[in-house]
Every structure is written in C-alpha cells, then in structure tokens.
Design a protein around this nucleic acid. Sequence first.
DNA 1: CTAATTTTCGACTATTAATTCGATAAATAT
DNA 2: ATATTTATCGAATTAATAGTCGAAAATTAG
Lengths: 199, 199
Amino acid sequence: MPQSQRQLEERQMRKERILSGALQVFKKNGIDGATMDEIANASGFGKATLYYYFKSKEDVLTAILLDGWLKIWESLEPVIGEQKSPRKTFINVLIKIAENAQNRPGLFEFLFNVPKVVKIENQPWKEYQERLYSVIKGLLEDGVKSGEFPNVNPNHMFKALGGLFMGLVFMGDREEPVTDKDVEKLLNQLITDPTISKK
Amino acid sequence: MPQSQRQLEERQMRKERILSGALQVFKKNGIDGATMDEIANASGFGKATLYYYFKSKEDVLTAILLDGWLKIWESLEPVIGEQKSPRKTFINVLIKIAENAQNRPGLFEFLFNVPKVVKIENQPWKEYQERLYSVIKGLLEDGVKSGEFPNVNPNHMFKALGGLFMGLVFMGDREEPVTDKDVEKLLNQLITDPTISKK
DNA sequence: CTAATTTTCGACTATTAATTCGATAAATAT
DNA sequence: ATATTTATCGAATTAATAGTCGAAAATTAG
C-alpha cells in the first residue's frame, strides 16, 4: 500500500516517456492530426496504457505545455531575482530562454506557437506564459524609463523582438549556445544603447 | 448547352457566398474544428450543395486562401511597378497591405496565420505568398544597399517587421485607414532614415 | 508461496463528421 | 409543353479515432 519512492519515480519516468513521444507526434502531425494510436507507438506503450497515465488526449497536451512553461519559468526566476539594470537583466533573460530552447529543441517552438491553435480557457500553463511576457514588458518599460533603451513604444519593441528572437533561436540552424554577444548584437540592431553610442 | 454569362456569374456568386460562410466558421472553430454542416448553415445552403460547388472541405479552404493571396498580390503589383526608391516603395507596399486587411477584416489575419496549421505541399497560393515575401525582402536589401536604410540584417528586419506590422494592422482596434504617416512612424521606431536624421 | 496491487494491452464501442446517394425542384432550351 | 440541364438537399454511408473493457502479466507484500 505504501507506494515506494522508486515506484513513484518510475511512474514519473513513464509519464515523461509518453509526453516525449506525444510531442514528436504533435509536431509531426499537428495537434488535431495526432492520434492516440500513433502516440502510443511513438512512446512504446499500448494505447490503453496511455489512458492509465493520462485522462485524455487533451490531458497529454496540457501536461506537455505545463511542464514546458514551468521549466522555463523556474530557470528564469533566479535571473530575474538578481538586481541588475533592466538592460542587463533583459539580456540575461533572453539568453536563458535561448539556453532552454537549445536544451530541448522542438519543445520551445511548440510552446510558443501552440496557443494559436488551442482554446485557451483555464489552461494552467497560461499563467506562466503571462508571467514571462509581463516580466519582459516590464523590463522594457523600466529600461526606457531609466534611459537605458531609447524612447520607443515598449509594446512595439515587444512584438518586434518576438519575431527576431524566434528567428534567432528556433529557425536558426545553429548548434552553439547563444551568448550575450549575440543578444547584444541582435538588440543593437533594433535599439542602440544610448549610454554607449552617444556618438 | 451554352452556359450564359449570367449563369456563370451567379454560380461564382454562390461560390463566394460559400467561401465567406466558410471563413466565418474556420475563424470561429479553427480549421479542424469547422464542420461542413456548420459551413452549410452559415452560408445558407444544404450540406450536399457545398459538394456541388467544391470537391471537398480542403478544397474550400484552398479556395479561400488562393483567392485571398491572389487579391493581395494583384493590388500590390502596380505599387511595385512604379519605379520609386526602395524606401518609398516599401512604405507603399505596407500601406497597400494594410488597406487590404481593412477592407476584408478577418480574412487577412487568417491568411497570415493559417500556414502554421496546414500541410503546405503544392498549395497553389503558396506561390503568391512567397512572391510577396521575396519582394519585401528585396526592397529591404535594396534599401540597405542604397543607404536608405541603415545597415541592419534584412532578414532580421523582415522578422521584426512581421511582428510589428501584424500588431498594427490586425490586433489593433483601429477603424481608420493606415496612413503613410503611421507606417513611417512605425518604421522609424525600428530603423531611422539616415538621409533625414543625420543629427 | 499466495494474495494483493500495479501495469500492460488488443479488441471493442461510440461518436463524430466527411462524403455520397437518390430524389426532386427550378430554370433553360427546343 | 416537353425534354434537358442545372441546382438543391436530407438521409444514408463510411471512415477515422477517442476512449473503454476485461483479461492477463508483472511486480510487490505478507
């Protein structure tokens, strides 16, 4: 009756294995195109076993998303905690995200694109996503206020950055980690640091 | 046996009516979520009649997309034809797209987002989409070469612009047409015209 | 070792929705 | 006015697939 620690851990492993197979299939066929049969194959279990671990297909998807966002958020927390300048923090946040993206390739592109396809009502991962977005927007605003960024509309910056960053991290065929130099360069193409390039 | 002109036109009308109902439903429920029954209702025909005019659900979707991209492209051709400076042409192209987007609200957001959801193999509309993208990229490159844009990576610019522009045109609650002032302003937030703001 | 429990799974069921059928009506032609 | 062509549609068919069932194998407990 007393579930042993090992038992619990193995259970967790199996869940992760299913999630990983599911991600593959979701990415290949799209969310609606993915079938439980194929997910079962991809993860090496029988279909019925999926339902032993997860309530439904939707539940599987939600688990992938929640887990993904949670891990991003956790890796970001310390960076956000450090009391550096908005610009410095901002750059570190981007680097951290890039790091995440490169550790688990595929997952993050999925994470950032899936909201367009899913009914987002009471999705538990939505909270973490929103937190991340509001932190970034906050940093932009603070940076503008403190004069570290030139006076552009933070909302516009945010959107432009989205396109740029996704391009850099996801589409890129690069293997090497994204360095702060990369991010600085990218950033300088959009907004020159007024404290440096006073010219 | 000789289909009268009017007959052909009425037929065309009916097809458009179906397409318009279908777009509504696609937008509301997503592509996979949309049912032919609902499309039939929305467009005021019986379900079987849809199949009299279109081969399949996919065919309906393709027709929407092809028609949309074709119309964008046609409206853009003259603007591209005029031999103005890259920067001027670039701005005019953006304005034209914005115009299109406002004339048929809903369609264009759909047009620009749907590729993420659809298997894009031999899609006839893909060609027009690619043409548009390559024109824009070309203008950016020419602008950089001629010194009208500062020397940023055109690929990055392109992506950043995507985010920005979509924000301005689609998300915005604005009713008024997008003017060249708007586009200039937007543009200047990203890239200052070196021929003006030499400071 | 035997009983309980956890895990696994292929076959079955139920549902949903795309597509087709067959009949009928409306319009057009002769 | 009759025949032919064009248009319409609800009902039936079919296909796909999410989710369930009941049995059995593996593991753990006493």
